[in-house]
Design a protein around this nucleic acid. Structure first.
Length: 505
RNA sequence: CGGGCUGUAGCUCAGCUUGGCUAGAGCGCUGCGUUCGGGACGCAGAGGUCGAAGGUUCAAAUCCUUUCAGCCCGACCA
């Protein structure tokens, strides 16, 4: 490739953000679009990130008293019909199975045969099937709470898809709980929102705002929906996890009831909460730069990749030296586990090999050639620094400080993302400021603009029309921070606190 | 699901308007050589039923119809 090229990914973020996003995913070999409409293939490097997310989240779910279970992929259509709002919300995007057999069509092909008596819906979410089971399992107050999580795939027939951010099929986890009292269910809802926020900030290194969704954005059938919202580098917000307080809506629809301590039959209070492979998209858009993916060490499939500089006269010795360094690194712990190290033995030119690891977001990389071996050191680069800033570090020091360096990178990424988020968060108090904040200078080819606008806001037809015009949405009513009486920037109506508004995915 | 654009080699694309030699380029890939610590260079190669199906024609990547997929813009959504 030409020497003049400054960055590994083309176009850059500033030039064309959506295209940059796709190129980062491709360069890092995370995933591809599949031949199946709207569905993606998650490749090993991308799937390993998901596995790391699963591992961390699963531990947190267990620590908060949940157990894993598995429910069917297929949901009888009539289950979905029970909760009116729920049907309405999901009906438009359901895949439906109507046959259970194939037969020759007489022209060398196949056609469906054996129509089902009742169509089966491929789960878009599992409230209904799980609720159906809970209704059987729960009879006494002694049976509560029921705290179950499921790792699964779901299907929502999306018309417009983007890798990780929105695909017809995606992987997620869905927690479903049932409680004896409203307060306990609400406590669960908030607890899991906190778990998600903790995970986002400490693992994804993605600062998030916890908040409640407005009625329009609420989960179909929920009494209240809470979310964590992150800000991507193109200044659009990403809903990155949701926790729903379902009240007794689903319990009533599905007859989840029990005898309480007074012997009275009452409905249970339920919750559900989930995060998906969308988080990988959030990860990409929070940290990556014009040289490709940047991974927070806690979720990186490999923490360190050693790139031996292979020359005929010293090949064996260098490889042996690398093996030794790798062994020593693996004996170190980072984040409670041995450091994940691999050696790239491929006989590629040094520069090319190293750039591949940069594009894949490996947090720490070390080039090791005869010169390093002679001086008993490693030539180390960090993904949170420029590719040029490489340093020779004595082997023993590199090994001894590797875990601390990973911790430092993890923290740096979070600090950097938080600074970006804070730099793109503003209090807006006039309509003019609001409009100009969300209006690009160049309407032909909109530049990156906007961010999180904290505003006094009233929900009414007038404000809704403005939002539609500017393509802005109410992200949430933030939970943290104090109430601050004020007046709606559009209508002047008095309000209690500021909402967060932004353009969003 | 509406409106627009696009499907030609693994990737990015030219060729199509005005049908006609054996369908091209760059990158990537394979081999050999020179190289090698910031993304190498030279030479020689492999690789395409032109998204798919029908049609028009002596002749279709090129024209027509249908269909599938992708991208952008709307509506919808984790």
């Amino acid at each position: 490739m030409a020497k003049g090229i400054k960055s590994a990914i083309s176009p850059t973020r500033a030039e064309d953000y959506p295209e940059w996003y796709q190129q980062v995913i491709r360069a890092a070999d995370l995933a591809e679009v599949s031949p199946v409409r709207g569905c993606m293939v998650i490749k090993p490097w991308g799937y390993a990130i998901w596995e790391n997310m699963q591992q961390a989240l699963d531990r947190m779910f267990k620590q908060t008293g949940h157990e894993n279970a598995y429910f069917p992929l297929f949901i009888p259509m009539r289950y979905l019909e029970k909760e009116a709002q729920h049907v309405e919300g999901f009906a438009k995007e359901c895949a439906v199975v109507t046959h259970h057999r194939l037969e020759p069509d007489g022209q060398g092909g196949l056609r469906p045969a054996g129509p089902l008596e009742e169509p089966l819906v491929v789960r878009p979410t599992s409230e209904t099937i799980i609720g159906e089971m809970y209704a059987k399992w729960i009879q006494s107050w002694r049976d509560l709470p029921v705290l179950i999580n499921q790792w699964a795939n779901v299907v929502r027939w999306e018309m417009r898809t983007r890798l990780f951010l929105r695909t017809a099929e995606f992987l997620w986890q869905e927690g479903h709980t049932a409680h004896a009292t409203e307060a306990e269910a609400m406590e669960e809802t908030m607890q899991m929102l906190d778990v998600y926020a903790h995970f986002a900030e400490n693992y994804l290194a993605m600062p998030v705002i916890k908040g409640e969704k407005t009625a329009d954005e609420r989960f179909p059938g929920a009494v209240a929906t809470y979310s964590i919202e992150g800000l991507m580098q193109d200044c659009k917000a990403l809903q990155s996890g949701t926790s729903h307080f379902l009240g007794q809506n689903f319990a009533r629809a599905q007859q989840i009831k029990f005898q309480n301590e007074e012997g009275k039959e009452v409905y249970a209070w339920t919750t559900s909460w989930g995060v998906s492979t969308r988080l990988i998209g959030g990860l990409v858009m929070t940290h990556s730069d014009d040289d490709g993916l940047v991974l927070p060490p806690r979720l990186a499939p490999q923490h360190i990749v050693l790139s031996p500089v292979l020359r005929d006269d010293s090949r064996a010795a260098v490889l042996q030296y690398c093996d030794r360094v790798a062994e020593e690194l693996r004996a170190q712990n980072y984040d409670g586990q041995p450091i994940r190290v691999s050696i790239d033995r491929r006989d590629l030119r040094g520069g090319e090999k190293v750039w591949q690891h940069i594009k894949k977001g490996v947090p720490l990389r070390a080039e090791i050639g005869p010169r390093d071996m002679d001086s008993d050191s490693c030539f180390v680069g960090r993904r949170d620094q420029s590719p040029r800033e490489k340093q020779a570090i004595p082997r023993s020091q590199f090994v001894a400080t590797a875990a601390a360096t990973l911790t430092e990178i993890q923290n740096n990424l979070f600090q950097r993302a938080r600074r970006f988020r804070d730099d793109h968060s503003v209090h807006i108090d006039t309509l003019d400021d609001f409009q100009s904040y969300f209006t690009p200078q160049n309407s032909e080819k909109p530049e990156i603009h906007g961010g999180l606008a904290w505003c006094h806001w009233a929900e009414n037809p007038q404000t809704a029309a403005l939002l539609q015009k500017l393509k802005v949405t109410i992200r949430c009513v933030p939970l943290d921070g104090e109430a601050e009486p004020g007046r709606c920037v559009v209508s002047g109506e008095p309000t209690e606190r500021r909402f967060v508004l932004a353009k969003a995915y």
